[in-house]
Design a protein around this nucleic acid. Structure first.
Lengths: 332, 332
DNA sequence: AAGATAACCGAAACCGGTTCCGTTACCGGT
DNA sequence: ACCGGTAACGGAACCGGTTTCGGTTATCTT
């Protein structure tokens, strides 16, 4: 029951600490018999090396930290972040790493690194206002990967979809259905990725000869309330809405219904992300490989930490056509 | 920039390691001047003690692990778990602890304890089939707190609401509105807490002189699809549904609408938990203090780890009356 | 049979902290 | 002048691992 140490194992097996350490780490210079003997002892007493002692000695912790700039609460509320996190966690465990939940609102994330508790960080979708975080990470020389494009980051420091392209797929779909009045409810455009989406929206319209109207462009937090609030507050409703987050889309749909209109008969809605809930409610949306995003982020980070070559991957995006879009109704 | 050690600080301040350690930990036996001098050096070189080295020396890691028996994926999908987690994380950080995400499907959670990476665990709503986990934790003498009642646990090892009472509030509400045909969609009744809910449901009916009908009792995973599937598959629908999870309730409502009925005009629905989404969709539900549950669990665990007195708290429950229940329509 | 080579193993130093115990200096009391 | 007490500090051992370096053997050449 009591946890045993390497010295005790050594004593029990009649060998030195060095030898035990060698079999633990599968090092050479050990005869098959002594290895076997040591293994037996380790097994009998169910010995497990103290990970932190190893970490101190190796100057490698094998754990990575999670930074969640936009207020950590979101992680738990927003299914999108949850799923990215799921991907990160999966990949990390697979590679024998641990995940430290640096649950920190202030600057303490620096702390866990400086205190040698983590080898690096993944930055969960930071906003532009979080540039100082990146600066700090660079300053203390901490390896990190962001799950969003950020100004000043090279290909090796982030993983993201092509947001411009994704948005253009969405509005082109709407355009093809004959919609001309397309509202966009974006996430905060201070974020580079959202800027790209907005540009994708604008360019897709222009390409079709439609001038983007400023009064159809909105933005807010990527939550239900945003979509709901904006749709409720508009005097006039468009025939289609492109929401840059599924939660926004869901909120918008509820508001539309509340106002006595039908989706998609009166108004078409397309969301973004394809979280699980989107499927539940039959939402047409742009799917991004959320889980994969997390996995790749983790993989890149680990490679970075271990000084390996890191390759830049591409994340594909696709339109999932469900039940919230429909050809525009002819007005007359 | 380069991280400095305690020995180097000692050298720079012209004192011994011992002295530096003393000021780090606010120990006595130090003159104000030397303390000041050491602090200056630490500050100038922004020294932070290596947490793991401290952990090795102290045999205390100041981090706690999270075990999520029901398949870790759920945490990220189910908003309820997410929020409990939020509470746990908040409390833990406040107390200077760290959260290790032992993201483990198999038996490896034992591992992190045996490898001295965590001081204890919080068990996130385990099921009855996870009794072996509890057994194992007991076997290795690991401190833990469960966020659900489990058979064989004393008051000091779990924190939960009074599920019996909570369920009875829900069905009494429905009863008061004149409903007599009340369907219950429970979470798996292999879980003790769900057993209690079922009993609460049954007793509340009996108290009103209504014999519970077996054909109105259902159960399944606490997810959208469960509510949706069950409601879709029933030939005849009741006038009210008590869903033991908000996600189930949401699914049920979607199915009801799909079948051309109205909520609450035709059918009343009450959910359970009061997750954020419930508010978004105007769901009438039983609110349990989710965040607080997590916080208390963390607090209890830390007290346990530190050998302090642990007090048992009570979690209050309340009906949040929104827009999915209504007096039953008179049949004739 | 001598010398070289390789296989196997251990002593001791190290990682970055904490702590026990002993030493020194200074104080007031008699 | 001597004694006892206390405040301030350091040496060295310790926590539980890893690693360097070197020393034995045994085996292989020639």
């Amino acid at each position: 029951m009591k946890r045993i140490t390497i010295s005790e194992v050594a004593k029990l097996a009649n060998v030195s600490k060095t030898t035990v350490s060698r079999v633990i780490n599968n090092k050479p210079d050990i005869s098959p018999e002594t290895r076997k003997k040591v293994l037996e002892v380790m097994d009998e007493y169910s010995f497990k090396p103290n990970a932190y002692a190893t970490a101190v000695s190796n100057r490698k912790t094998k754990t990575i930290g999670l930074i969640t700039p936009q207020g950590t609460g979101n992680i738990y509320t927003n299914p999108f972040y949850s799923r990215v996190l799921h991907g990160i966690a999966t990949e990390i465990t697979e590679q024998g790493y641990y995940l430290m939940f640096s649950y920190i609102e202030n600057d303490d994330y620096i702390d866990v690194f400086e205190r040698h508790m983590v080898d690096g960080f993944v930055l969960l979708s930071p906003g532009v206002e979080d540039k100082k975080i990146v600066d700090k990470l660079k300053a203390i020389n901490a390896p990190f990967i962001s799950t969003t494009v950020l100004p000043g980051l090279d290909d090796h420091s982030y993983i993201d979809i092509d947001n411009y392209h994704a948005a253009s797929i969405a509005v082109k779909h709407l355009l093809a259905l004959g919609h001309k009045n397309i509202m966009i409810i974006n996430s905060f455009s201070t974020l580079l990725s959202n800027k790209h989406r907005l540009k994708g929206y604008r360019d897709a319209l222009k390409e079709k000869g439609i001038a983007p109207k400023e009064e159809l462009i909105f933005e807010g937090e990527p939550i239900f309330e945003t979509g709901f609030g904006i749709v409720m507050s508009q005097p006039e409703l468009p025939t289609a809405i492109f929401a840059c987050s599924d939660m926004i889309a869901l909120g918008a749909i509820e508001a539309i219904k509340k106002r006595g209109k039908q989706v998609p008969t009166d108004i078409s809605v397309v969301g973004f992300d394809d979280i699980h809930l989107a499927g539940n409610f039959g939402l047409t949306t742009i799917r991004q490989p959320i889980l994969e995003k997390g996995k790749i982020a983790a993989k890149m980070l680990i490679n970075k930490i271990e000084g390996k070559e890191i390759e830049v991957s591409k994340l594909e995006v696709q339109l999932i056509d469900r039940r919230t879009t429909k050809a525009v109704r002819e007005e007359h």
